Structure formats: structure tokens, C-alpha cells
Simulated assay, not measured.
Amino acid sequence: MTDGPEVAEHHFLAALVADRDGRAADARRAYRRAIDVAKGDYPEAWLNLGVLEKGEGDLAAARAAYRRALELRPGYGAALVNLGKLEEAAGDAAAAEAAYRRAVEADPRHAPGWLALGQLQSDARRFDEAVASLRRALEARPGYDAAELSLGVTAARAGRTDEAIAAYRRVLARSPRSTTAWYDLGLALLDAGDPRQAGDAFRQAAAIDPDHVPSRRKTAELELASGRVADARARFEELLDLVPGDLPARAALAEVAAREGDRAGCEARARALLAEAPKDPAVQPLLARCATLAPRAAAR
């Protein structure tokens, strides 16, 4: 048998395996075979081909594949959301919003469509609309962590810190190893004026994912702000091990040296930064701060 639904499905399943294994060229060929055998009428294959093309950086091919899927299935929510993401990345927020709205109009319980719409509205600072859309996503899919996290981000942007904290804690009740939820909770707790609990949240995020640079950075910054200079030095040095050459961490270590009264160490770090980032507005004031320190007496 060389054609028919069973053969098309066989090629489609082979494409899924190749895609999963990172064999993009094999996956592309298998999706194309599935489409050819189905005489073009295979919207799922067009959708997945679009995802693959986007991953390979061919946005025009991805857009064409999504549109072909939509010609075959006009209310195809996944294709509409993916097409909307392409439009959003291209800077066409109106086209993206139209695609997301088509998805939720075709299927009012399409949670990813409501999520994408809510995130776009949040980015546009249309907070009340965003909250309504994100709540629709959660109604359609209770326990949808991505929507709950976006609800927290939206509340934080709107200055509703208590609501943001509550949203992040709901995520953590379901997914206690969510690095994103712990980190975002830490940011919200900082906004709420609770640096101690914020530090605990950032440390939790870093413990779950030691490579999570933002939480490692916030932990170090809080150590320094709290006057725990030796601990701050250790945390910033660990950050430099993770991200060699990181300019903010190097600037922070110059500040650590200043707080330790180490003028030579402060100036050496500040001058190295000035050589690499002469236009950084934070470097010159740092060098001036170093100059206010008394030189350390030479050891006898």
C-alpha cells in the first residue's frame, strides 16, 4: 500500500519520533510524505511542520504551513495561536490579537488561546482585559500553571502585589519545584517590602535550578543590601563562575571591595570594567567611590 490514511499516519508518526529525537531533516521529510500521501489534507502535519520550520528559523515557511493548516481547518486553535505568536514576534500585535480571538471564538474552552490573548493584553498594559482572559484560561483548564503565572505577572505589573503573591503561591502548591514561580514570588515579595521572605524564595529557585542566573543574582544582591558583605562576595563569585565576565556581578564585587575598605581592590575592578564598558553609566561613579576610600596601610 502506497497511499491511504494508514500510510499517511505511519509517516506522521515517524515524523513525530524524528522530531522528538532532534532529527529535523528526517522529521521534515516524513511530515511532507504524510502530507503528500494525504493529498495535502493533513492539518496536524501542516501544524507540526510549521513548528519545525519556526524552530529552524524559517519563519516564512512556518507562517505558510500554519496558514495551510487553517485553510483545511479554519478554527484550528493550535495553528491560530502559533500564527499569532509569529505575528506578535514580527511586531504586529493587532494581527496576533485577531488570531488569538479567532482561536477562542472557535473554541471558547481553548485554554492556550486565552493564555496567549491574556499575555498580549498584559504586555499592552490592558490589565483588566488580561485578567479576564487569563481567568477564562483557568476556567477552561483548572490548574493551568502557565495561566496562573501570567495572572501573577499581570497583577504585579498592575501594582496588585497581594494578588500576585497569591497567584504564585497557588502555582507552588501544585508545582513546588517551579523555578519560575519561586523567582516571581521573590520579586513580588520584594515589591511588598519583605526582603527576608524574598531572599528565601530566590534561594529556593536557585536550589531547584543552580543555573538560574536571575535568582542567583537576586540572592547576592540581597546579601549585599543586608550588609552581609562576605556572603555577598561569595554569591557574586559563584555567579561569575556560572557566567564568566558578567559585568553586573563584577561591578557588585567592586562595591563589595569598597564596603570592605579595600581601595586597591575596588579600583582594580572598577578600572577593568571601565576598559571594557567605557559607556556604562554606573562605572565612573563606582571609580569615584573607590577614590574616597583610604588606602590600606602596608603590612609590617
Rank of each mutant, 00 (worst) to 15 (best):
I208Q: 08
A225C: 05
R177T: 13
L185V: 07
C290F: 10
L187D: 12
V153T: 11
A257V: 04
A24D: 13
I208M: 10
A201N: 08
D36R: 14
H11D: 04
D19T: 03
L115T: 08
V243M: 12
D191N: 11
L16C: 07
A220N: 08
L149V: 06
G91P: 03
W46E: 08
Q121E: 15
A111W: 06
T2W: 10
T154A: 12
S150M: 01
V283K: 12
L16H: 04
D41G: 04
A140C: 09
F202P: 01
A60G: 08
E221H: 08
S133G: 02
L189V: 05
D162K: 13
A99S: 15
S122Y: 01
Y183W: 02
D3T: 15
H110C: 02
G227E: 03
L72Q: 01
G227Q: 03
A166Q: 06
R141L: 12
A62G: 01
G77W: 04
G261R: 08
S178Y: 07
D107K: 06
A155E: 15
G261W: 07
H212Q: 09
A94Q: 11
R109L: 09
L253Q: 08
R126W: 01
A206C: 08
D184S: 12
R63Y: 05
R203N: 13
P281V: 11
R216P: 03
G113D: 02
S175Q: 14
N48P: 06
G193W: 04
R32S: 15
L242Y: 09
A69C: 03
A173P: 06
V81E: 02
D241N: 13
F202R: 06
E105V: 10
A234T: 15
G84V: 00
L172P: 06
L120R: 02
A147R: 00
F12H: 03
A258S: 13
L172A: 03
A60L: 11
P214R: 09
A164K: 04
G50T: 05
F202S: 06
Y168T: 09
K218E: 15
R160D: 12
A230E: 15
R217T: 10
A62P: 00
A61Q: 12
Q121I: 03
A254Q: 07
R228Y: 08
D200I: 08
A79F: 02
D21T: 05
R289G: 15
G152S: 07
A124G: 05
R101I: 04
E88C: 00
E276R: 15
A93P: 01
P74D: 03
R33K: 14
A34C: 01
Y100G: 00
A288C: 03
A99Q: 12
I208H: 09
D58T: 00
T219F: 06
Y76V: 01
L149M: 06
R109D: 13
A116S: 13
L224T: 07
W114C: 02
Q284S: 11
V104W: 07
D241V: 13
G50H: 09
L151A: 09
Y144N: 01
D209K: 12
L293K: 09
A234P: 07
R63P: 02
A61C: 04
G75F: 00
A251I: 10
L274E: 15
G227W: 04
G50R: 10
R228F: 10
P43S: 02
E238T: 14
A94G: 04
E9D: 13
